[in-house]
Simulated scan of single mutants.
Amino acid sequence: MKMFVAVTSLLMVSGAVLADAQICKMGDMVRKVEVVHVDGDSSKPCDVEYTKVTEMPDAPAAKLWHFEVNVDQCTVKADELLAKLQGWGWTCEASASEPATTASNE
């Protein structure tokens, strides 16, 4: 979990990605937890998205949280979710991020 924060911070500073993701696995199931910032800018609004990769491969990611002002809360909420998943037996690790869709302003 602390590694996610360090990786997230490093990637946000580098500006090289639009989203920071963790892939979690248990048996044959795969889940993705992703922090997505508008325009890839860590100072702009963000979403925490959750995808059931293997169970619902064609379904869009569920937006669990959205922050307009206190954007650091996206990382906090993602870390909390990852801790829960790991507590339930999931194994999570950083994913090589690909450009994600831009977070919407809801």
Rank of each mutant, 00 (worst) to 15 (best):
M1H: 10
K2T: 15
K2P: 11
F4L: 15
F4H: 12
F4C: 08
A6G: 10
A6R: 14
V7D: 04
S9A: 15
L10S: 10
L10M: 13
L10I: 09
L10W: 14
M12P: 00
S14Y: 02
S14W: 07
A16W: 08
A16I: 10
V17R: 12
L18S: 08
A19F: 03
A21I: 14
Q22A: 15
I23K: 12
I23M: 14
C24V: 15
K25S: 12
M26V: 05
M26L: 10
G27C: 00
G27K: 00
G27Q: 00
D28A: 12
D28M: 08
V30E: 08
V30C: 06
K32T: 15
K32Q: 15
K32V: 14
V33T: 12
V33G: 09
E34N: 02
V35G: 07
V35K: 08
V35F: 07
V36T: 02
H37E: 02
H37S: 01
H37P: 02
H37K: 05
D39R: 09
G40H: 02
G40I: 05
D41C: 06
S42W: 01
S43G: 05
P45M: 07
C46I: 06
C46N: 03
D47T: 08
D47P: 04
E49S: 01
Y50I: 01
T51Q: 08
T51L: 01
K52H: 10
K52Y: 09
V53Y: 02
V53T: 10
T54R: 13
M56F: 09
P57N: 05
P57E: 10
D58A: 13
A59N: 11
P60H: 06
A62M: 03
K63T: 04
K63S: 01
K63N: 02
L64D: 07
W65S: 04
W65R: 07
H66Y: 02
F67W: 12
F67D: 03
F67G: 00
V69I: 15
V69Q: 13
V69T: 12
V69W: 15
N70G: 13
N70T: 15
D72Q: 03
D72Y: 04
D72G: 06
D72K: 06
Q73K: 15
Q73D: 12
Q73V: 09
Q73H: 10
T75A: 11
K77F: 09
K77R: 13
A78T: 05
E80R: 14
L81D: 02
L82K: 04
L82A: 08
L85K: 03
L85N: 03
Q86G: 10
G87R: 08
G87A: 04
W88H: 09
W90V: 09
W90G: 04
W90S: 01
W90Q: 02
C92Y: 09
C92K: 04
A94R: 11
A94N: 14
S95E: 15
S95P: 07
S95Y: 10
S95T: 03
A96M: 12
A96K: 12
E98S: 12
P99T: 08
A100Q: 05
A100I: 04
T101P: 07
T102D: 06
S104P: 07
S104Q: 06
N105S: 15
E106V: 10
E106Q: 05
